[in-house]
Design a protein around this nucleic acid. Structure first.
Lengths: 239, 239
DNA sequence: CGCCGCATTGACGTTCGTCAAGTCTAGTGG
DNA sequence: CCACTAGACTTGACGAACGTCAATGCGGCG
């Protein structure tokens, strides 16, 4: 085994528990290494794939952060998600054989390329992988339900509070702080995701600062009162 | 073969092309009939499944219309979709083994019950089915991207226009009129789906009527100027 | 016939968007 | 090393879109 093949093996990856099934037999684990064909580096602001591009592979994020967005003919766009290490992107391409959104790197990033045909084949043979693929897709559907709830029935404060809590929770699960984070996206990108204008995002953040719930220094955010933030994200109706 | 087993066979179902893969070998088609365990009738306003319920099966709608909704602790809810004949619901339950939303029948309905374990098993053996399951889930993800775009960056008029066009198009694909439809849901349910209050839905509909784009009589809607409606749904930016 | 749920419409209020001015920061080039 | 610039961010004043509250209409069902 050359150092190169070691480097690219899922069985040897410290992110495996995030992006792959956990309960594998040794021989299954070995087979998993057939899955990732190559790695691919994507520089900040570059696209991993774009709307209309032929779909061939799913991507597991190794390092960095991406945003996905959809666009209308008249130029409006909507950020549909922010993805970080261990998360899978490209699922939108399966249904029509071509991607229906763009994936843009928010910082220099690296992904594992998983050719879809190989994934199909393997998941027919490795039951745990089949189940995992289904779970990943189902999780995405449930996540989007949550975003629809946010966009459809929350006010600006609640949206932003929920957003910050979600981000910090995901970062915490990856070994980062549970109270501090660095935003990899602009106010405008946050606004697009939350269905708000960048000024509203900025104002709402300032309001949180005034209330002593968070400290903000540019992209650096520290949550000083997590309980208050949770109350903001999910307020009790009082009337 | 008893009349009863004939009645329940996918191979014999006039909705098969909507909810099942099309390119099957005869022997695969036969195997498909193992998939649907039973049928289940759901009366208007009754739940097919509810938030927190253990997930065991996916459901293919045979007749009727459903809404799915998610709910917050403080009682707000968001309609996440309206589903009709040939569509699959219950995908949200895969990830955690329990449903995370409610499915409510908007009229007396009937569904085919597809035990998930059986589906997993079969889709390991029938490649076309495996692909189909992936496509169904991917399609749902892409649909939700569209809803996010709608909720995040469209105005009331555009949302409602897009909603009506989407409904009539899906009904048309099922053999109904391309210009007339009967709404199975209340103004409030439409509003919940579109992130609007029921009054706004009502007012916007009235506006469409004034403009001669549609005729509305209670739940009965006739699209009199489809082109105008499309322009409303996706207006060109003018500034 | 009368009730109840659904829908419509109007008056008014709130939230968020728009427009504009100005600040801060990081990166660039002199 | 520092001035300069561009992009990102903040803040204020104002307005539009949509929500809220309330009155009324309508139709179907018991």
């Amino acid at each position: 085994m050359t150092p190169d093949t070691i480097k690219i093996a899922c069985s040897n990856c410290n992110l495996r528990e995030l992006c792959m099934p956990v309960d594998l037999q040794p021989n299954e684990l070995e087979r998993l290494d057939e899955l990732v064909a190559t790695r691919r580096k994507v520089k900040r602001k570059e696209l991993l794939f774009h709307n209309g591009e032929r779909f061939t592979s799913l991507f597991a994020i190794r390092t960095g952060v991406f945003k996905t967005r959809v666009t209308t003919e008249d130029g409006r766009d909507q950020v549909t998600g922010f993805q970080m290490a261990g998360e899978i992107i490209g699922l939108d391409g399966i249904v029509n054989g071509q991607h229906s959104c763009d994936a843009v790197a928010l910082e220099d990033s690296e992904v594992c390329v998983m050719p879809y045909e190989r994934l199909e084949e393997l998941s027919r043979e490795v039951t745990a992988l089949q189940r995992h693929v289904h779970q990943v897709m189902s999780r995405e559907i449930v996540r989007e339900h949550g975003v629809m709830l946010l966009l459809g029935s929350m006010r600006a404060e609640e949206r932003l509070a929920a957003f910050l809590l979600n981000l910090v929770q995901r970062l915490h699960a990856r070994g980062f702080s549970a109270t501090e984070l660095i935003l990899r996206m602009t106010r405008e990108e946050i606004g697009s995701y939350l269905g708000l204008k960048l000024e509203t995002v900025s104002r709402t953040l300032s309001k949180f600062v005034e209330e002593g719930v968070v400290e903000v220094n540019q992209r650096h955010v520290r949550i000083t009162d997590a309980e208050a933030l949770k109350r903001l994200a999910n307020p009790t109706v009082c009337n």
